[in-house]
């Protein structure tokens, strides 16, 4: 079409985008640690399993916030749908965990798809309202539908059969950790594929500049619906894992704290490079166990204080210095750049 342009083509830099989606040393280190923990911390498998699940949940938030610039305080909605679906499948249909996981993923994806249209238009403010509102709404439904969900008593009598028909879940959470870790690994691998694709590139473009994105021919709304749905599937799988590994679901799956904590973990871990969830969840659980040992009832006070200090000092600065301390390059963690979409006040 444009001879002037195409004749001079050279390809010396073309491998750049490929490189980006290749795994690095830091990635390998993370997985080594997580695997080693299986053997080195045998008494902590329940906690580790919880961390892996929460990490997956935070990853779901990273997909929409870190990559597509959608701020949400209602990610718990999909976590809850996944958890209840998994519980109900186990009680009424089959105790096979993998089938339960797939059904929950589908259910959460469906709810995510249906509600995605509400977050398309509008500002950060509208999105906050909608995401909080949808979560409260679902929580209220779960609360009222006592016949199905057990209401405030929670969903009881969940029993989960052996994994793949072979490995039974044990009391120490060893199977649970292995299972959660495997799903988290799968989740990260898939997510990396997605964000490294042309689709993922278009999401980052939308996050950066929605108007310009549509002017290069990107159907912005369709892409946002897609990633929101994918993200809700991730959150739903996390919820299902929690239901299956703890064999209990209660109304607190829809808790505002759950969404807010996820946001905090993501911010601690860093947005937009997929591993923020794992790092954030690890750090968060560490802080939580220290604080709640000291003041079991009031640990959210200290958490709040942490948030206030973090923002006041400048979270970019704090996180970057921690990242440097850990030897993760500054290029990987750049929360500032990644909420470029979060519009500046006038």
């Amino acid at each position: 079409m444009h001879p002037a342009i195409q004749m001079t083509g050279r390809s010396r830099n073309t491998s750049f985008l490929v490189e980006q989606s290749r795994s690095g040393l830091a990635e390998l280190a993370v997985w080594t640690i997580l695997l080693l923990a299986m053997f080195l911390a045998p008494g902590r498998h329940q906690l580790l399993s919880e961390i892996a699940i929460v990490a997956l949940f935070v990853l779901s938030l990273d997909l929409i916030m870190g990559y597509a610039g959608i701020v949400s305080l209602g990610q718990a909605a999909f976590f809850g749908v996944g958890a209840y679906s998994a519980g109900l499948v186990a009680i009424y249909v089959t105790s096979d965990p993998v089938i339960g996981l797939l059904v929950s993923a589908a259910a959460a994806g469906l709810v995510g798809f249906a509600t995605s249209f509400l977050v398309l238009r509008g500002s950060d403010l509208t999105r906050l309202m909608v995401t909080i509102g949808v979560t409260s709404l679902l929580g209220e439904i779960a609360n009222k539908a006592t016949g199905i969900t057990g209401g405030a008593d929670g969903l009881q009598g969940i029993s989960i059969g052996p994994l793949l028909g072979l490995i039974p879940f044990d009391l120490y959470g060893t199977t649970a950790y292995g299972y959660s870790l495997a799903i988290l690994f799968l989740g990260i691998v898939l997510a990396r594929r997605i964000v490294g694709s042309s689709f993922g590139l278009s999401l980052r473009a939308i996050r950066d500049n929605q108007l310009r994105a549509s002017a290069v021919g990107i159907p912005v709304n369709a892409r946002l619906v897609a990633i929101y749905t994918i993200s809700s599937v991730y959150a739903g799988v996390a919820g299902a894992l929690m239901a299956q590994t703890t064999q209990f679901v209660s109304l607190d799956v829809f808790d505002f704290h759950r969404s807010a904590d996820a946001l905090l973990m993501l911010v601690i871990g860093g947005t937009g490079y997929l591993y923020g969830g794992i790092i954030g969840a690890g750090v968060f659980k560490l802080i939580q166990s220290v604080l709640s040992d000291a003041t079991p009832q009031y640990w959210h006070f200290w958490l709040g204080l942490l948030l206030v200090v973090l923002v006041q000092v400048g979270r970019t600065r704090v996180i970057r210095s921690i990242a440097n301390l850990l030897g993760l390059g500054p290029r990987q963690i750049s929360p500032q750049a990644n909420d470029a979409k979060m519009s500046q006040p006038r």
């Binding site: 807010a260 640990w299 204080l305």
Partner: peptide, 13 residues
């Protein structure tokens, strides 16, 4: 958002 959620957590506790 983060800051004001922090304030909320602190006030509640």
């Amino acid at each position: 958002v983060l800051f004001s959620i922090g304030i909320v957590f602190m006030s509640v506790a």
